[in-house]
Structure formats: structure tokens, C-alpha cells
């Protein structure tokens, strides 16, 4: 299957500064209806990557392909198959939503009558049906975000690139936006690239995640697999003499790191159940104050990837910086 995004040693310079430093990866599969999350701290190069994919920036070296098409050389073909929701304000204030969407639809190649029908259809779909004749300048922030989403999907693109779609939304509007994104991929088979700094949004919607830092990919993960792998991650707090606890754990093939004051981080191998841990604790005459099956959240993956927290026991992957330098994912 053709990957949705394929980067090969992509380098992008803005002025004299290199923003993307030779990144390589293959993300998603065309027509699979999967969502790819693009994460990274501010200045990591997420927006530059999106803008390069859209052909707004030229690569100084390497190549970027979307749905098998070169983003620079086949820019026109790429753009007719992609929908883009920009992060910033982009709606023409004194124009009605229907009119803007008609124009955008026709520019994407929809016949005039179809564009008009689709404009109404999409606006009802995103919940702006009643407000579709109002000037866009009178819309609330949430409505503007929905209008931006509507213009991105009016022509039924194969790939929708959403740049911070939930920015500034209240919880209800955020939930609605994420529901629409989920529908786009699950019901309509669209591939989605979601660029966000809100990890919960990415966690709720995405199947794959790429974490960028300083213009390099520091982590690329299948979120579902990541979640499964981290179910064996336990945080334990005990009172009593725990000096032999580490040895007792290793006898059973588990690894534990003492964080002091009776706090332990333990990684259980797949064959060890949590009951075994209870038995070890009993044998060592320790009192359990707290035991958490810590489901490693995306936040932890993110912080680990960008190097804000120490790597924990049992984490055998190469350090993130090495991953980035090698360009290996």
C-alpha cells in the first residue's frame, strides 16, 4: 500500500536556518482511514513539515511525498487530493460561509452546482447549517474552527491535514470537533494528519504518532501497540524494609527501580501477572500503600521522547537523540 506520507531525508531551510534536519519516515497507508498525530514542542518543525507537504516551502534536500506524489514536482495533483485546515485565522470576514465554501469547492474542481450543494451539505454536517448565510466575521471562535474544517473537506479529499483543530475550543466544541475527525476517518475513509500540542486530542483520535523535536523525529509509534506494551507498567508505593525487593523482583524476571521513600517503578514481563507482585510483596513483609497499573499515556511517551523525563527501567529503546541522528524510526 502507498504510504500517506513518505519523507526521505527531508531538509528544509527557512532563510539561513535549517528547520527540518533530514527526516525520513513512512506514515499511514493510503485509503486506510487512519489518523496520524504530529506532535512536538513549540519550534519543533511541525508547521514547517505541514507547509512543506503542501508545497508552501521548498525542500533544500531530500523529498516529501503524499499519497505517492512528490509534494514539489506534483504539487497540483497533491493539492487536489488534500484538504487543509490552517491553524491561524483564514476566513474572509465579510463573506458568508456558503459563499466561501462554494468558491473553495469550485477551486478544488467541483462543478458549480455540486459545489453549491456540497457547501450546504458540509455546513450542516459541521453544525453550521443555521449560520451558513451569516458573514464569517460574526462567527465565534468555535464556529470559525468548524468553518475551516468544512472548507477543508468540501471536495472530499483523501487526506485532510488539520493544524491545531481544537485550538481555543470549549470542551463541548472540542468533543464535537474530535467526533467529526473520528467520523472522517472511520466513516468516510479519509486519512487524517492531526497536528496538535494537545496530547489528549492526539491520543483520542490518532492511530500513529510522530514526535518531532528540533527538526528531527524523536519518536514514531503505533499508539495501539504502545498502549498494549505499557499495560505491564506498575507504580508501587510500599512501607517497610524494601532493600531486598529489587532482588526478589528480578528472581521473577521483573525489573524494578527504587525512586526512594518506598516508591517503585516496575516493569512486569508479559507472563507475570499482577498476583505474582502481590505474592512478592507479602513474602518481603511489605505494606502496600498504593499500587497503580500505570497505563503509559501519550503524555509520558511524549515527555520521554523529547527528553523531559528520565527513561525508566525496562525501557530498552535507544535514546531519542540517537534515533534522531540515525534517522531510524
Amino acid at each position: 500500500m502507498t504510504p500517506v506520507i513518505e519523507l526521505d531525508n527531508l531538509r528544509v531551510k527557512l532563510g539561513r536556518r535549517e528547520i527540518l534536519k533530514g527526516i525520513s519516515c513512512r506514515l499511514g497507508a493510503s485509503g486506510s482511514g487512519k489518523a496520524i498525530g504530529l506532535l512536538g514542542p513549540n519550534g519543533a518543525g511541525k508547521s514547517t513539515l505541514i507547509l512543506t507537504l503542501l508545497g508552501f516551502h521548498k525542500a533544500s534536500a531530500g523529498s516529501a511525498r503524499i499519497l505517492g506524489l512528490d509534494c514539489h514536482r506534483q504539487s497540483r495533483d497533491v493539492k487536489s487530493r488534500v484538504g487543509y485546515m490552517p491553524e491561524n485565522e483564514a476566513l474572509i470576514a465579510d463573506m458568508s460561509a456558503v459563499r466561501l465554501l462554494r468558491i473553495m469547492g469550485e477551486l478544488s474542481g467541483l462543478p458549480s452546482r455540486v459545489a453549491l450543494e456540497k457547501a450546504h451539505e458540509v455546513l450542516f454536517h459541521v453544525g453550521l447549517g443555521e449560520a451558513r448565510y451569516r458573514p464569517l466575521g460574526t462567527y465565534s471562535l468555535g464556529m470559525k474552527q468548524m468553518a475551516k474544517l468544512a472548507q477543508a473537506i468540501i471536495h472530499g479529499p483523501e487526506l485532510v491535514i488539520l493544524d491545531e483543530p481544537t485550538n481555543g475550543l470549549d470542551p463541548a466544541a472540542r468533543a464535537r470537533m474530535l467526533k467529526l475527525v473520528l467520523e472522517m476517518k472511520n466513516d468516510h475513509g479519509m486519512n487524517v494528519v492531526l497536528c496538535s500540542h494537545l496530547l489528549r486530542d492526539v491520543e483520542e483520535v490518532c492511530d500513529e504518532v510522530v514526535i518531532l523535536k528540533d527538526g528531527a523525529i524523536v519518536h514514531h509509534a503505533n499508539l495501539e501497540e504502545e498502549r498494549r506494551a505499557n499495560r505491564r507498567f506498575v507504580e508501587l508505593e510500599v512501607s517497610g524494609d524494601d532493600r531486598n525487593f529489587a532482588a526478589a523482583l528480578s528472581e521473577h524476571g521483573a525489573e524494578g527501580v527504587n525512586e526512594g521513600a518506598g516508591k517503585w517503578r516496575i516493569v512486569l514481563p508479559p507472563e507475570i501477572e499482577i498476583d505474582t507482585l502481590w505474592r512478592i510483596v507479602g513474602r518481603e513483609s511489605l505494606d502496600v500503600q498504593r499500587l497503580t497499573h500505570r497505563r503509559d499515556s501519550l503524555e509520558e511517551i511524549f515527555l520521554k521522547a523529547v527528553g523531559h523525563i528520565h527513561r525508566t527501567a525496562g525501557d530498552s529503546a535507544a535514546p531519542p537523540q540517537e534515533v534522531a541522528t540515525n534517522g531510524r524510526l
Partner: peptide, 17 residues
């Protein structure tokens, strides 16, 4: 209006140079 409202990305993200 396109420039003051920042609408150019909407046009240029479509098959329009």
C-alpha cells in the same frame, strides 16, 4: 481582503498556483 484575513493558505492549498 484575502491578505488582511490571512486567506491565502486556503487558496494555495488548492490546485492553484
Amino acid at each position: 481582503p484575502d491578505l488582511s484575513n490571512g486567506a491565502l493558505p486556503l487558496y494555495f492549498s488548492r490546485p492553484m498556483s
